[in-house]
Design a protein around this nucleic acid. Structure first.
Lengths: 330, 330
DNA sequence: TTGAAAGCGCTAACAA
DNA sequence: TTGTTAGCGCTTTCAA
């Protein structure tokens, strides 16, 4: 469209009376030109309103200054992923990188020339974009392990098993003797780890497991139906741990409708914290996954891989925490 | 790094025994080559694992297949913006476009060569990125008007004034006679419109306005302090409308602590709906801003501007709605 | 310290 | 229907 609206390097060079090489070096501060010419060229460039064509630069230098980011399709509305994205963007901006959101439409077979590397948040085994990216030759960092059979360049992990154990111990010491678990699907490493941890904990403590699994991205009505059914079927249940993001908040009305009092005859906890859980009555105990830090850690690890500072196969640990609130005081 | 790992057009052309133009045309389905050669070239390309270098393509065709997206820095955690982003990404993907998140670090003075156009969600007057983008020569579509003095190519708007009027009327007919307003800053068109609408409505109905303004992105503690102070100072207040995203949910504990019963002696409503407000006790009446549709509408309008189907200066209306819940039954 | 020339991988204009 | 040639705007040799 607007042809020739922007001035290019040659024009700057001409106006400054130097070669295009010198102009390029001056503007990139390569340390090759004298201070005097550098200042001169920069002044001319500013006067002409020059901005470098990053596409041309990418083509020549074969590095794009951009990282890709892909998240599960089904996330719908989730504070966790929003914070995760912000963490990635924030760290990328610090390194002077842009972030491109990658969707299903155009992942090529071998090389994704538009980005220098990719961050995958909670890669689903079933996601074709994830598979495409892992099979392409661009470096990939995942948040949580990929449970399929391709290897990312590096992984950021958290100790979900240990933290859920702590949560279950906490419930037990608050008096719970029959803890139910609203589980997330095993299609992610996170969901799978939580299920296993719950089942093993029950075994160790001689507690009969009461687990209901929900598909990733289930609508709230389904979560509510499950909990309603669960409370009806097993009136002895005196604590409930909710894994899917948003499920703890969503089932509050159902629990109230069942005549239970949260924090007293039914302890409630969530595997994903959110601001909503701060303000409920009572506030709900939750695992703090520190999504913003997770995003930043993934981006940083990707940059370390790209620069060679971190070797392929690096697994980096992200600490997470348990925030106890009134819903589990017992 | 991995030099020569990916095969390029010349190699495909050579292997297929055609010129690189023909190969290019065959792979892009330009309709210039015979069906026979097209199939042959495509087969060879697949066999070699060819994927086109989009950077080179962009440089040559001077269109990037990417749109930019910029949101206010202060959004912190917000379901509204998450949905907005999904709307943009979704529509972009349908048009075979990628979405790049634009942050403060690298907005140039004249031309942002990496994107074909930009969507701005709720542009803040004070945001330097917004100003830079609006002054650059790339087409910009904003969600809500920009209150500064530059003109975007097009705007998507909603009838916030009309909808807030409806909400206030609804409160009045539910018995409210003294409606307070927790306002958002006037730094966005949305915040400004809501304040004006509230004040005019009060005037028309001979009601003394009780307005407290919060800075964009205020922490929940500040919101809570404001409402606590408001309820103390004006015990006659029998309804509260909360503008800032998340504030209605955040002030619930404060209202309870003040001994008020929501939906009975204090009606509560929010100017931004969210899933959290569905599940509170009682559920909270809210304006549904339809963020996902807003994002999609912005992206679509940008594509229409780019293709010339929509003229510069287009203002497109997005319908929004009011969802009445138990918090305002009166 | 600077300049000239080559070329990143592709598409568009011009020929055949 | 196909091939040849010329760049897109930049960075990077290689030479001076």
């Amino acid at each position: 469209m607007r042809r020739k609206e922007s001035v290019n390097l040659v024009e700057v060079a001409k106006a400054a009376g130097v070669s295009k090489t010198t102009a390029s070096d001056a503007l990139r501060n390569s340390g090759r030109v004298s201070e005097r010419t550098r200042e001169h060229v920069v002044a001319v460039a500013n006067r002409l309103g020059y901005s470098p064509n990053l596409v041309a630069r990418s083509l020549r230098s074969s590095s794009t200054g951009t990282i890709g980011l892909h998240l599960p399709e089904v996330l719908t509305r989730s504070e966790y992923y929003m914070s995760f994205v912000l963490g990635v963007v924030d760290r990328a901006a610090k390194m002077d990188y842009d972030v491109m959101l990658i969707t299903a439409h155009n992942v090529p077979s071998r090389r994704f020339h538009r980005v220098d590397g990719v961050v995958l948040g909670d890669p689903l085994e079933t996601d074709t974009v994830v598979r495409g990216l892992l099979n392409s030759s661009v470096p990939v960092v995942t948040c949580e392990r990929y449970t399929g059979d391709a290897e990312p360049a590096a992984v950021v992990r958290s100790d979900h098993a240990g933290t859920l154990d702590r949560l279950l111990d906490h419930l037990r010491s608050a008096g719970a003797r029959d803890i139910a678990f609203l589980a997330s699907s095993t299609v992610t490493d996170w969901g799978r780890t939580l299920q296993q941890t719950y089942l093993r904990w029950c075994e160790r403590h001689d507690m009969r497991p009461r687990l209901r699994e929900m598909a990733f991205g289930s609508p709230t009505a389904v979560m509510q139906d499950n909990v309603r059914a669960l409370l009806n079927a097993d009136p002895a249940v005196d604590a409930l741990v909710c894994a899917p993001d948003g499920s703890a908040a969503a089932v509050l009305p159902v629990i109230r409708a069942a005549g239970r009092t949260i924090g007293e005859d039914l302890l409630l906890a969530s595997c994903v914290d959110s601001t909503a859980l701060h303000h409920t009555d009572p506030p709900v105990t939750a695992i703090d996954l520190r999504p913003r830090e997770a995003g930043a850690a993934c981006a940083q690890l990707l940059f370390d891989i790209l620069s060679g500072e971190a070797p392929e196969g690096t697994v980096s640990a992200l600490p997470i925490g348990l925030t106890e609130r009134r819903s589990t005081r017992g």
